[in-house]
Simulated scan of single mutants.
Amino acid sequence: MADLQDLVDEASLLLEGPVTLEDRRFRLLAFAAHPGATDPVRVETILGKGAGPQVRAWFEGFGIARATGPVPVPGDPERGIGPRLCLPARGRGVVQGYLWVIGEGSRYAPERVAAAMHLADEAGEQLARQVSRRRATERLLHELLDAGPAERSAGARALADDLAVAPGSRAVVAVLGAAPGQRLSAESLRGAGGLPRRAAVGDAEGDVVLLLPLVGGAGADDPLGEARSLVERALGQLEKEDPGRTVVAGVGQVVPLAEAGDSWTQARAALRVVRPEAPAGRSGPAATRVHAWDELGVRRMLGGSHADALAEAARTPAVRALLAADPELVRTARVYLDRAGSVAATAGELDLHRQSVYHRLGRIEQITGLDLADGRHRLELHLGLLVTDPDGGGQPG
Rank of each mutant, 00 (worst) to 15 (best):
P53V: 04
G75W: 08
G50E: 03
V43N: 00
G61Q: 08
V94F: 05
I102H: 15
I81K: 14
Q96L: 13
G103R: 07
C86M: 12
L47R: 11
A57M: 04
G48L: 00
P53R: 01
A57H: 09
G82V: 11
A57P: 05
G48R: 00
R79E: 02
G93F: 04
R42V: 00
G93A: 08
R90D: 07
E60N: 08
F59Y: 14
V113C: 10
G50P: 02
A51Y: 01
A51K: 01
A89H: 07
Y98W: 06
R92L: 04
T68H: 15
E78A: 07
F59Q: 07
T68L: 14
K49C: 02
W100M: 14
Q54D: 13
A67Q: 04
R66K: 11
G91S: 02
R84S: 11
E78S: 07
F59W: 15
A114V: 05
P74L: 15
P70W: 14
P72T: 09
R79C: 06
P110Y: 10
V73Q: 05
G61R: 12
G80R: 12
Q96C: 15
L99Q: 01
A89K: 06
A67F: 10
S106V: 13
L85P: 01
P77E: 08
D76Y: 00
K49N: 03
R107I: 06
L47P: 01
E111Y: 09
P88N: 07
A89N: 03
R79S: 04
P53G: 02
A65G: 09
Q96Y: 14
F59D: 07
R42E: 00
G91E: 03
E44H: 07
Q96V: 10
L99I: 02
R92P: 02
V95K: 11
G93W: 02
A89C: 14
P77H: 13
V55H: 13
P53E: 01
P77W: 14
T68R: 15
L47M: 03
G93L: 03
F62E: 12
G91Y: 00
F59A: 08
P74I: 09
T45L: 15
Y98K: 01
P70C: 14
G93E: 11
G93N: 03
E104F: 13
R42W: 00
V55R: 09
G63H: 02
V55G: 10
F62P: 11
I64M: 08
R79A: 10
V101H: 11
P77N: 14
E78P: 00
P77I: 13
T68S: 14
G103V: 11
V101S: 06
V73A: 06
F59H: 09
P110L: 10
T45E: 08
I81W: 07
A89F: 04
P70Q: 11
R107T: 05
E78K: 09
L47T: 08
V113N: 08
V95A: 08
A109L: 15
T68E: 14
E111Q: 12
